[in-house]
Simulated scan of single mutants.
Amino acid sequence: MSHPKTSPCCATLIGDLVGSRTAPDRHALHREVTAALQGASDLVPPATPLAITAGDEFQGTYDALGDALHTALWLRVHLLPSRIDMRFGLGWGPVTMLDSARNTQDGPAWWSARDAIESAQANEERPGLRAVRTVYRRAVAGGPAPEPINAALVCRDHLLGLLDERSLRILAGLMDGTTRAELAQREGISASAVSQRAVRDGLEVILTACEALRSVR
């Protein structure tokens, strides 16, 4: 009889859709989210695949917390222009593999991610934190400290909540390496208008925070 195997510490990511039960076409919603999960996985390969587990929830693991944080932002930024929003709980700690054939996992990292996403959901009842969709918890000492990371996430999510659809599309393009000239042509505006939005709407601030958070190991 095989026994569950506990792996070294890793980052766990749980995401779910906000308000998806009221979507007019849930099949189309599922297709768009599935495509986004594949795009995120192509950009930042997870340790275990991002997969929809039940209903509107999906999960995956990463060797580095920064990769999980970047994935969460990439998904939100690329889906928000379609009016699809997500909340995320991230955890850090050991993971126990219960069934390798079915990739069934358990362990402190998952418990901390579950606690984090429940905290993210609770933010919706707090007017001042309603825009905060991403929360990180640490299950064991020695991993990335949650206090500075959550401070950055609060500010990042607040800025995202202030963006209109055009600024979100521009931010998504900048994250993907699209030039400002190409974004201007795509949006039907001038390159200077793209630059003005990047400054006025804090897109440069979000990108700078994004790079700093992505370096977290």
Rank of each mutant, 00 (worst) to 15 (best):
K5F: 10
T6L: 10
S7N: 14
T12K: 07
L13R: 10
L13V: 08
I14K: 00
V18F: 13
G19V: 09
P24Q: 14
A28D: 11
A35I: 01
A40W: 00
S41H: 05
V44P: 00
P45Y: 03
T48V: 12
T48R: 11
P49L: 13
F58L: 05
Q59P: 02
Q59A: 12
Q59H: 12
T61R: 02
Y62F: 15
L65C: 06
D67L: 05
A68N: 03
A68R: 01
R76K: 09
L79Y: 06
D85P: 04
G93W: 10
P94A: 07
V95M: 07
T96I: 09
T96N: 11
D99N: 12
S100P: 02
S100L: 12
S100E: 15
R102E: 15
R102V: 09
Q105P: 04
D106G: 11
P108L: 13
A109I: 13
W111N: 08
W111V: 03
A116H: 07
Q121S: 07
E125C: 11
R126A: 09
A139P: 08
A139M: 06
P144D: 01
A145Q: 02
P148C: 02
P148L: 09
I149H: 07
R166S: 11
S167V: 04
I170W: 09
L174I: 04
D176V: 02
G177S: 13
G177D: 00
T178F: 14
A184R: 12
R186N: 13
E187N: 11
G188R: 00
S195F: 06
R197Y: 05
A198E: 11
V199M: 11
E204H: 13
E211I: 15
E211Y: 15
L213A: 05
L213G: 01
V216N: 02
